[in-house]
Design a protein around this nucleic acid. Structure first.
Lengths: 123, 123
DNA sequence: ATCTCTGTACTAGTAAGGTAGTACACTTAT
DNA sequence: ATAAGTGTACTACCTTACTAGTACAGAGAT
């Protein structure tokens, strides 16, 4: 399943999001599959359901899940594409930020802004 | 001088650090030059001296400044090399993080950890 | 129908981090 | 010697954000 690093500076719900996306990207979780329920994952990772719920809510808003209330979290058909797109987008912004930001004189604030958003997990 | 974006999520002292490094990288500030005093910069940017002091303290710890107590902040001979090295290092970590981290299945926690540190301004 | 599962809303506590206020010690120049 | 500059230490406020506690509403199965 997913590994949580409680020592990390990254918030747990972000680790969950990244973890699930990673599972999809690796093919261990495919569109149509059912992700573990909020409570199940919370119990296993010894977290509060709300922490897991936040991750699921944001993933759902991004279109990873399709499923009705009270039932389940089924990975949408777009899930795989989304996970890959997110990874590509992040990678693009990383390399772009590295080259364009530092190669020549770009506004310092812009660089910092990029880094700030990155930490927040703007994948 | 330096531009501060108060709307940014990046802390002010980090913006100051990045800004000064940028000035050095662009050659507008050279080794041997004297950086503005803490109070002068604080007054100009309408900040508390402590905020600027924190930036200067960290820069000093990184070896950008050489100067004795009570006098000034003179850019060390290494300043230019350090600024360039920092930029290169960041760029390397960014591209590395983008490719290695997301290309195939790396531990999610590691990715998050990298992002977290990046936002903290680990240049 | 009741029990158990699901997700969720609201609240609150808590920890971390950044910034400002204030005061002190020292150096230099007038 | 005095005044004005320097950097710094200590404190405290404040904001932000993450996480947990608790309780509620709906769905499905026995």
């Amino acid at each position: 399943m997913i590994q949580i690093d409680f020592r990390s500076q990254a918030p747990i719900y972000e680790q969950i999001k990244t973890g699930l996306k990673g599972l999809v990207r690796r093919g261990l979780l495919k569109p149509g599959d059912e992700a573990p329920s909020i409570r199940a994952m919370a119990a296993q990772l010894k977290l509060n359901p709300n922490t897991v719920a936040r991750a699921y809510r944001e993933l759902s808003a991004e279109g990873f899940f399709e499923g009705q209330r009270g039932s389940e979290n089924v990975l949408s058909p777009r899930a795989a594409a989304l996970a890959r797109a997110a990874a590509a987008h992040l990678q693009a912004r990383l390399t772009e930020g590295g080259k364009e930001g530092l190669g020549h004189g770009r506004a310092a604030a812009a660089i910092e802004e990029l880094l700030a958003k990155l930490k927040k997990g703007a994948l």
